[in-house]
């Protein structure tokens, strides 16, 4: 089991945040889904940017 703390990633185009702890249940990404496990063809929920436009959000 992955015991690393959950991280957040942010879309640099629109500011949308992906929180690993929360996932996106409304789009079938379960809470706890690590960013690496989010499908590569996934698009930002807010603006449609590709996954590559997300960056790690530092505290």
């Amino acid at each position: 089991m992955n015991t690393q703390p959950y991280l957040k990633y942010q879309c640099i185009l629109c500011g949308e945040i992906y929180d690993e702890e929360l996932g996106v249940p409304e789009f079938n990404i379960a809470p706890g889904t690590r960013w690496a496990d989010v499908p590569e063809d996934w698009l930002c929920m807010a603006c449609g940017a590709p996954k590559s436009e997300y960056v790690l959000l530092e505290d």
């Binding site: 629109c14 789009f27 807010a46």
Partner: peptide
């Protein structure tokens, strides 16, 4: 829910002030 409307637009031109 979900409510992914396009009131702020979509894509790289999505509303800056959303």
């Amino acid at each position: 829910s979900p409510n992914r409307h396009i009131g702020f637009g979509y894509g790289p031109h999505i509303c800056l002030g959303q």
